[in-house]
Design a protein around this nucleic acid. Structure first.
Lengths: 115, 115
DNA sequence: CCATCATTTCGAGAATACTGGAAATATGGA
DNA sequence: TCCATATTTCCAGTATTCTCGAAATGATGG
């Protein structure tokens, strides 16, 4: 991953609403959730929510899938892996200086919204 | 680490110049390098460089240490660990979905600038 | 103290990002 | 076809961020 691309992803996540959207989508899992539910869950106006979803989509961190009348958004886990790998490799001295990260367990996260 | 704090760190790194500064400081190691050298290495005007260094300092990703007439900046590795741990825990399903990150080796990075 | 150099602060202009109402588009069901 | 609903696009106002010259501050050695 290039530096410019990494900076764009980081900037995309560097906004509270977008970071919350992203976390919500992680919790939702691969099926994702639709735009209305996201906006409702986070208290965002439809236009604002759409704006942030477009931003996250543009940098490749999430993707959209149309199903019936709804558009389901879900995280692109590979993109997140790329980003975290970039940070680990370039913004650190490798895994050796990440004790807290190493302590993170692989846990099943409960979905915040049933759908 | 709180969501707001994480968003601030991500936003700080989400700017090309600041991300480059951060990477340079990672390469420089714990001793750090002074402001002039950073600006010179990245082609930033002193005032601009100072602005970005202040931003990174404010969110806690780097710290400053005065030595003689110079101010040496260096990365706060613990802060970066916190951030990557946050991303791994909250923006992912834990380490299990990070194959590329797992493949990152712990390597000795050559300093970009001798000092 | 004084001259010098490193760095920051100030200030202002330019660019970019954020927000949300209103209108447009798209989809599916009656 | 027509209506209801989901979502986006358009638009404009507001706010924030970025950049950097110039001036101010701080540190040092003489």
């Amino acid at each position: 991953m290039e530096t410019i691309q990494a900076a764009e992803c980081l900037a995309a996540l560097g906004h509270q609403s977008r970071l919350e959207i992203f976390r919500l989508l992680v919790q939702a899992g691969p099926d994702g959730i639709n735009a209305s539910l996201i906006g409702e869950a986070l208290g965002l106006a439809p236009a604002t929510c759409s704006f942030h979803l477009a931003h996250l989509t543009r940098v490749g961190l999430i993707s959209a899938r149309q199903e019936s009348r709804f558009i389901y958004y879900s995280t692109d886990f590979a993109a997140m892996d790329d980003l975290i790998a970039f940070l680990t490799a370039n913004c650190c001295h490798g895994k050796a200086c990440l004790p807290k990260t190493a302590a993170v367990n692989t846990v099943a996260i409960e979905p915040a919204i049933k759908h």
